[in-house]
Design a protein around this nucleic acid. Sequence first.
RNA 1: GUGGCUGUAGCUCAGUUGGUUAGAGCCCUGGAUUGUGAUUCCAGUUGUCGGGGGUUCAAGUCCCCUCAGCCACC
Length: 383
Amino acid sequence: MNETKTPGTFDIAAKSGRARTGVLHTSHGPIRTPAFMPVGTAGSVKSLSNPEIEATGADVILGNTYHLWLRPGCNFLRDWGGLRNFSGWNKALLTDSGGFQAWSLSSIRKIDDEGITFRSHLDGAKLRFTSETVLDAQRAIGADIIMALDECTPSDADIPTATRSWERTLSWTRTMAELWHKDPTAHGHAQLLFGIAQGSLHAGLRERSCRELAELDLPGLAIGGLSVGEPEPEMYRIASVCTEVLPEHKPRYVMGVGTPRNLLELIDLGVDMFDCVMPTRNARNGMVFTWNGAFHYKAAKVAKDPRPFDPDCQCLACRSHSRAYLRHLFVSNEILALRMATIHNVHFYQDLMDASRRAIANGTWPEFKRTTLERLERKGEPL
RNA sequence: GUGGCUGUAGCUCAGUUGGUUAGAGCCCUGGAUUGUGAUUCCAGUUGUCGGGGGUUCAAGUCCCCUCAGCCACC
């Protein structure tokens, strides 16, 4: 396991049905899959220090091109030798292209065939996102995995709209892939470019989207445009269509997902990588995830609960504090509550991935998935 | 003792020349949260409007009495 492999190498060690476990190698360490990647939009997994992130077991974290472009700026980061040098994070980094902001910030952007123009939400300045500028930006930020510019299509888009949208995404991806192939190490180390499938909830479009992407010979492929409001079964249906078409030997990344249940279902469909703000955001909003389900730790019912968030968890929060104390801190607006809950949630997500990897490796995946899904229904109350 | 001010939700207060089922913020309770514009958002509970009487079609609002707190002067 200590051998250094070429960045982009994806070794699948074991399978169970469509589920797989393996390792994706990057310029800054291996990513064990299935992997959950905590989100650090502005260069920080909110409220956590680098050692705290590492202690959760995360191999890789995310940054966001749109937000980092605004602050501190791409040239600034280039001068620092990339975000990793600036922030001190020395494991793998992935940057999202800003395509999600085409959806989440739809009120302050315009899309045309060449790209996306944002009006900064900070000062109104115009930012022009094209294949070229987004590749440059991500080279400046210096992530190990960079994402193609895409348009995150709304889940209710009709076929003509969704078609126009994914064709635009595909054309941007083609241009970006061409530029990237010319010099995959322009930043100084190998950066793996991932393309993103779109197509909304239309199976035919998704299938075409995945087939077209597969031809671009990129080191990884992502499924975007999910978890944007569609019903859960729809998400699984579309993810399944995609994983059936995507090449077997490339890592598959479902962007922006999700709940612990979502992760297990998608791993079962052959997905290898995930990212989601849920563990970090919900921690700050008073909710924690446990092996016995999620619950609001700010709720009155835990005011005197002496147990840790999760008796089965070895994170700093669970080793140090009771639910009662952490509720008190939350209710009192103490920052420590947010930090501890974030540490716990990210740690739990990593534990969930670790257990999934082991279950796939040792052949107990179906049983593990079934019993875990049952436990996750319990809302934090051990039986 | 005299004069004045103030009494409205658990807290701090708003209530227009009297006019529908008396409001806000905080607190409290519950819920949401899916490639972060999030210490965010949504919803809900709580009232003898200090008490009594009067005027009026109608009083938190006007009048009288009374109680409590505060201030000033004796």
